[in-house]
Amino acid sequence: MTEDRKPMIVSEGVKKWFGDFQALRGVTTTVGERDVVVVIGPSGSGKSTFIRCINRLEVHQEGRIAVDGIELTNDLRNIDAIRREVGMVFQSFNLFPHLTVLENITLAPIWVRKHTRTESEENGMQLLERVGIPEQADKFPGQLSGGQQQRVAIARALAMNPKVMLFDEPTSALDPEMIKEVLDVMKELAESGMTMIVVTHEMGFAREVADRVLFFDYGTIVEEGTPEHFFTNPQHDRTKLFLSQIL
């Protein structure tokens, strides 16, 4: 974390078990406001589980998580408050197939923020322009390409005006030529000052955009640092091995 920034996400000793399998073995880190943190690591290392704990899609059993000063506890009010502040983009898009693109985006503003339909639709169209596909507003998700669907998913998350955006392998389900269009949107978002945690295998993105890289293995953060440190001078053997395999 850049020292002068106020902490946005605080995680202290977060542990999580699936049955008797321990997915997180004490994750401690802090993400500051406007930080872009890229999380990398082999599959099964707990990186997805960690970011899913941040908005309570998974329940952590030990440790503490706080988002923008709100403690993530069993209190429904806190959970709802955090989910309103945290947007999430999934690997498999998870757009609502029975709603049009624009309805996907306006659903939460209308039902959760209680904005009017006209207001939400105007805002939704602006977001679609921001992600570059305003002409698809009245189509259904099934009629869009993977890259377009993922951009709609980003617009849907942004429609709630979140303070934090979580990306769970946003480009892993995409054809190579569509990855760029999604990464471009994410870069623009990072430049605009959004706080982001991105789980990805796109090392180019990490190098170019990240303020900080976390390397996960075996349910813990093995190594963290700036992209420069990380890609040129990794300290840990496990990190070296991982990087040698993917670069």
């Binding site: 908005n55 309570r56 899609l57 709802d80 989910r83 309103r84 945290v86 947007g87 999430m88 999934f90 498999s92 998870n94 757009l95 609502f96 659903l107 939460a108 039902w111 959760v112 998913a153 849907r156 998350a157 429609a159 709630m160």
Partner: peptide, 23 residues
């Protein structure tokens, strides 16, 4: 209905009843 639908609806802040009714 895919589990991801549930998660996406929760992630945008809908409450449990709304998730069931709207999604």
């Amino acid at each position: 209905v895919h589990r991801g639908q549930n998660e996406a609806a929760l992630a945008v802040g809908l409450r449990r009843g709304q998730v069931l009714r709207l999604v």
